[in-house]
């Protein structure tokens, strides 16, 4: 999805900032509708209690990690493994958090926690596009909330509809297969350099050989091996680039 936004953006009032945030978030909210339905349907198709799945959507509010956690929970993986997996899948938010921190610097701590809960891939992209890092951050929180509130509401309503639709789908349809397919669609945009491709290949190979490990430890082991290889390759490339200069 491309986000086209004019720079040199000026916000006069908080009211205006709220409305602008909602307006800018609108296209990505429409895009969330089918994805929310899929996450909800896959949750119950994988065997989760509908109310538990709905509580999870509201508490966690991060689709990919919800799917990863459900996959492990239905196979009765230990809690520590589930939580580590959720953390690993959501580590990208640490990157977004570091990038957005300067915009929220002047806000009270409680408000910064609230804004953090609503953080999504799209909101991160919107704030970065609309506000200059060293420019004015006036009403940035109002702009953010204007996008975050409808995003949150539409997401959870769609997940809820999907959950209750999922209870009607027979198990023979294998709708839980939608979970790896979602991840498959997300993986290619993440493979931007040769080092990323090698990382993915190593992680997949490691996942194959660790699949039989007890307590579903394989996922975390494979992810760690992949990240370690990627980090080393990146370091080596950087050193070579410096030497070549």
């Amino acid at each position: 999805m491309t986000i086209l936004i004019a720079t040199g953006f000026h916000v006069q009032t908080r009211q205006h900032a709220y409305r602008q945030g909602a307006k800018d978030a609108f296209p990505s909210i429409i895009g969330l509708i089918p994805f929310g339905l899929i996450v909800g349907t896959a949750s119950t198709a994988a065997g989760m209690d509908p109310w538990l799945a709905l509580a999870m959507s509201i508490i966690v509010f991060a689709g990919a990690s919800q799917l990863a956690a459900i996959g492990l929970m239905v196979q009765s993986a230990p809690m520590l493994i589930v939580l580590t997996t959720v953390l690993v899948v959501n580590l990208r938010f640490v990157m977004y958090s570091a990038s957005l921190a300067p915009f929220f610097r002047e806000l009270p701590l409680g408000r910064r926690w609230l804004l953090s809960y609503g953080l999504t891939d799209h909101l991160f992209a919107l704030v970065n596009a609309r506000f200059q890092r060293d420019g004015s951050h006036q009403h940035v929180d109002a702009y953010y909330m204007g996008g975050a509130i409808p995003t949150w509401a539409v997401w959870n309503v769609m997940v809820a509809i999907g959950i209750f639709a999922g209870t009607l789908v027979p198990k023979q349809w294998s709708l839980d297969f939608a979970i790896p397919l979602v991840f498959l669609a997300l993986v290619f945009p993440a493979l931007t350099t040769r080092s990323h491709w090698v990382t993915a290949g190593v992680a997949a190979t490691a996942a194959y050989f660790t699949a039989a490990l007890p307590m579903k430890l394989g996922l975390i082991a494979a992810a760690l091996v992949g990240v370690a290889i990627g980090t080393l390759l990146d370091q080596r490339d950087e050193r070579r680039a410096l030497e070549a200069r």
Partner: peptide, 11 residues
């Protein structure tokens, strides 16, 4: 490299 490693390990 988190995305490139985690997603294949999940799939």
């Amino acid at each position: 490299f988190v995305g490139a490693a985690v997603l294949p390990a999940l799939i």
